[in-house]
Simulated assay, not measured.
Amino acid sequence: MSSNLRSPGRPKRKNQEPSVQETVLIKASMLFMELGYEAVSLQQIAKACGITKASIYYYYKGKPELFTAALTAVMHRVSQRTAALLDQEMSLRERLILLAETKLSRHHADFETIMREARSSLSPEQLNEIHRAEDGIHDILAEHLRRGMESKEIRDMDPLLAAHAISSVLMVGNREIAKGTPAPQLARDIIDMFWLGLQR
């Protein structure tokens, strides 16, 4: 028997294309981040991917498992992007403004709202997995704030607390973006508000 036979039920994949699982994760994360947990169905995700719902079940037991994988993947991508932005050759203040503008320029549903909707459907292990991935973003930001404290660009304080505070205000900023406030100006206003409180 040929070893190249697909497992029963496994979706077909053409050469040089993203795997079906990668496509499902990408489409699912886009839909969850745009519409929230409750509004998105597996059938809707399958349609967006051009596959059957049965194909999704080949990889994931159900919506909670897919949501966890999708949100975790989103957080890992955000972590990588955050690190790249904060590694730019410019002052800490300008890097924070760049980070804020980038985050505010990407429209998506409020993360806390999405998690409130999903919480009752997720196991403690799934919730922990998502929050660990989210913590990775805060850890990267906190590390750059810590370096700013060492270089005396900002005053000493708990860098992780400062990272969480900046992230929280940026989430609130997303609501202002929805009202029509330009992202560049809002990003600068938010970081300047923190900067005045952080400077030595």
Score class of each variant (00 low, 15 high):
Val169Asp: 01
Tyr59Thr: 01
Gly36Cys: 12
Met90His: 02
Glu153Phe: 02
Leu196Ile: 15
Ala183Gly: 09
Leu196Arg: 13
Asp87Phe: 07
Ile97Met: 06
Met30Asn: 06
Leu99Cys: 02
Gly50Ser: 04
Ala28Ile: 06
Glu125Leu: 13
Thr113Glu: 15
Leu104Ile: 05
Met33Pro: 01
Ile191Asp: 01
Tyr58Gln: 01
Leu127Thr: 05
Ile154Thr: 03
Ala70Phe: 02
Pro64Val: 00
Arg6Pro: 11
Ala187Ser: 04
Ala70Lys: 00
Ser55Thr: 03
Asp192Lys: 10
Pro8Leu: 12
Ser105Arg: 07
His107Tyr: 07
Ile166His: 05
Leu99Phe: 13
Ser19Val: 01
Arg13Asp: 02
Gly148Phe: 04
Leu31Trp: 00
Pro8Arg: 09
Lys27Met: 05
Ile97Gln: 03
Ile114Gly: 04
Cys49Asp: 00
Leu104Asn: 01
Leu122Ala: 04
Pro184Ile: 09
Ser2Ile: 12
Ile166Tyr: 02
Ala84Phe: 02
Met193His: 13
Gln126Glu: 13
Asn15Gly: 11
Leu99Lys: 02
Glu150Cys: 06
Tyr37Thr: 03
Ile137Pro: 00
Met90Lys: 11
Asp139Phe: 12
Met75Glu: 07
Lys179Arg: 15
Ala100Thr: 04
Glu153Gly: 04
His164Arg: 13
Ala118Leu: 09
Thr23Gly: 05
Leu96Arg: 02
Leu198Phe: 15
Arg77Pro: 02
Val74Trp: 04
Ile166Trp: 06
Ser41Pro: 08
Tyr57Met: 03
Ala118Trp: 00
Ala163Pro: 09
Thr23Lys: 03
Ala165His: 03
Asp139His: 15
Arg188Asn: 05
Ile51Gln: 02
Asn15Pro: 10
Lys14His: 10
Ile56Ser: 00
Ser19Ile: 04
Glu143Asn: 15
Gly180Ala: 11
Gln80Phe: 09
His76Thr: 09
Phe67Val: 05
Thr82Met: 08
Gln199Ala: 14
Glu17Ala: 11
Thr68Pro: 03
Ile45Val: 15
Gly36His: 03
Leu122Tyr: 05
Tyr57Gly: 00
His107Thr: 13
Pro124Leu: 08
Val78Arg: 05
Ile190Gln: 02
Met193Gly: 15
Leu96Phe: 05
Glu94Asp: 11
Leu122Val: 10
Leu127Gln: 13
Glu38Arg: 12
Pro124Gln: 08
Lys12His: 14
